[in-house]
Design a protein around this nucleic acid. Sequence first.
DNA 1: GCTTGACACCGAACAGCGTTAGGCTTATCC
DNA 2: GGATAAGCCTAACGCTGTTCGGTGTCAAGC
Lengths: 198, 198
Amino acid sequence: MRTRGPGHADTKQRILEVARKLVIKQGHANLSLRAVAREAGFSAPSLYEYFASKDEIVATIAGEIAASLRRALHEAATEAKDPRAALLAIGLAYVAWARKHPQDFLLMFSRLPSRRRALTAAPPSESPYQIVVAAVTQAHEAGVITGKPQRREHIAYALWAAVHGMAMLQLTHLAGFDADFATADKAAVEALIAGFGA
Amino acid sequence: MRTRGPGHADTKQRILEVARKLVIKQGHANLSLRAVAREAGFSAPSLYEYFASKDEIVATIAGEIAASLRRALHEAATEAKDPRAALLAIGLAYVAWARKHPQDFLLMFSRLPSRRRALTAAPPSESPYQIVVAAVTQAHEAGVITGKPQRREHIAYALWAAVHGMAMLQLTHLAGFDADFATADKAAVEALIAGFGA
DNA sequence: GCTTGACACCGAACAGCGTTAGGCTTATCC
DNA sequence: GGATAAGCCTAACGCTGTTCGGTGTCAAGC
């Protein structure tokens, strides 16, 4: 039983790189396997040596993208000077990341459900949302946010939903708008945090 | 120059009804003109007698959908007993509508930019967002919300973004979750309103 | 050293897509 | 009655993801 040849993993990686480049250039909806294959120097059916389907390629890319977003949020959280500032920073970093990587962001959320099955379940450590939950927990312990511990999940969800909505609107319905979104986003997240505070 | 025959408008309407039924059943991404034609009793090319492209069909449907959402928000606003309650009611009605008509909602926001070009510009009267703006204006006049009049647009945007994010997440990333979203959504919108209040 | 078998690739093809071209029938207008 | 246009059709183009069957190459086992 021979295992996969030595260049297999490299080729797989190259396919992913080409695919991601094309997604960034023309959006995930316009990604074609034939284009990926052409760019990578293969015929389209050859890609099936490396991935079971187009969806598997996209899913793999989505995983890489989630990790990248998670890093951005983590960085924002660690640079903040206190727990309250961290909540704001994470929220704004989420929107900023989406604006900087619009096609990546849209691809990520074009994919169907998370594997988590309940809001109360802890997100897996590789999930960007885990950063949000951790920051809310710290803010709660620091007294920035009041109420019973169960309220944490409401707050994490509210913060996430709010910035997700901002990001989505700015990338789709409000794309191209001439507006100071940075100021509007900051005001919104600050109001939300204040509303949950003491 | 003969005008279009008498049955033309009816046929057009029927095509739209079939298309919308299929969208609801299988999602806008899986809508096929051939399927619409089959269901409506035509060949696919015949649809081009009535619409210039698939996109025109989808755009027309999107317009009808927006009107339906607008009515739901309007109803929620008029039934509320005071301006503050109206803000909450509109927000929750937005999410409720999205949950009740998931495919319609996703279709509507899969379409690219609004024709409005700035947050400061007034939304057209047929836009669902116009309901939000009007409610925020009333709440501001009633003193539920404080600050300069210019702040209104921040608040309307924040409210919209928040409920849009909730709706989007519940329909995509959090689809199928076992969670009490109604409670979480209410807590979030209340916190947001409180955060913008006096 | 030869056989076996899996890997890595390919072209051809299938069923589907949105769309265009061209042609036929029917009803209306002059 | 001839012209015109509406309203419909089949055939086809170029695209999509995917499957099938085949071909060369290279490592392992005898």
